[in-house]
Computed example of a mutant assay.
Amino acid sequence: MDRKTLEYLEERSKKGRELVERIERLNKFLEQVKGKSFHCIKLAIDSSSIEMTGFGTKQVELNYAAVAEAHMLNAFIDVTNAEIKIHEKELDEL
């Protein structure tokens, strides 16, 4: 093997490791959001914040905040799953 081939393989290996790390990090986000450790969504606005329902492990009343938070969570999960698929495709093509 010549130097150019080794550099090419090294570059692909590095790119592959980066993709695997991104996929693992995104999967960890999903585990946290779907898991029992999830407490609530907090929106930071300037120097203050708004804490949504605080689902945690308890049942919450079905109201505006609960519905809004559920939609935000579902959107986050959908976008994260789509991003994982993009990185998995890149990894397959590598």
Rank of each mutant, 00 (worst) to 15 (best):
L9N: 12
R12L: 15
S13I: 03
K14H: 05
K14S: 08
K15N: 06
G16K: 13
G16A: 15
R17A: 14
R17I: 07
E18I: 06
L19I: 08
L19C: 00
L19H: 00
V20N: 00
V20L: 06
V20W: 00
V20Q: 11
E21V: 01
E21S: 10
E21A: 11
E21R: 03
I23F: 03
I23E: 01
E24L: 11
R25S: 10
L26D: 07
L26S: 02
L26F: 09
N27D: 14
N27G: 13
N27R: 15
N27I: 09
K28F: 13
K28M: 05
K28E: 14
F29D: 14
F29N: 10
L30N: 06
E31M: 08
K34S: 01
K34A: 01
K34C: 00
G35S: 05
K36H: 08
K36F: 04
S37G: 12
F38C: 02
F38M: 01
H39M: 14
H39N: 13
C40Y: 14
I41V: 15
I41C: 03
K42A: 00
K42M: 04
K42W: 00
K42C: 01
L43E: 07
L43R: 13
L43Y: 14
A44V: 15
I45F: 07
S47I: 06
S48H: 14
S48Y: 09
S49E: 12
S49Q: 02
E51W: 12
E51R: 12
E51H: 11
M52F: 15
M52D: 04
T53F: 03
T53S: 14
G54M: 01
F55P: 05
G56H: 07
T57H: 06
K58I: 03
V60A: 07
V60P: 02
E61A: 02
E61M: 01
L62F: 04
Y64Q: 10
A66Y: 11
A66E: 09
A66K: 10
E69K: 08
E69N: 03
A70T: 09
A70F: 07
A70E: 06
A70N: 03
A70D: 07
M72P: 06
L73F: 04
L73Q: 05
N74Q: 08
A75R: 05
A75N: 02
F76M: 15
F76I: 15
I77R: 03
I77P: 10
I77L: 11
D78K: 14
V79G: 04
V79H: 11
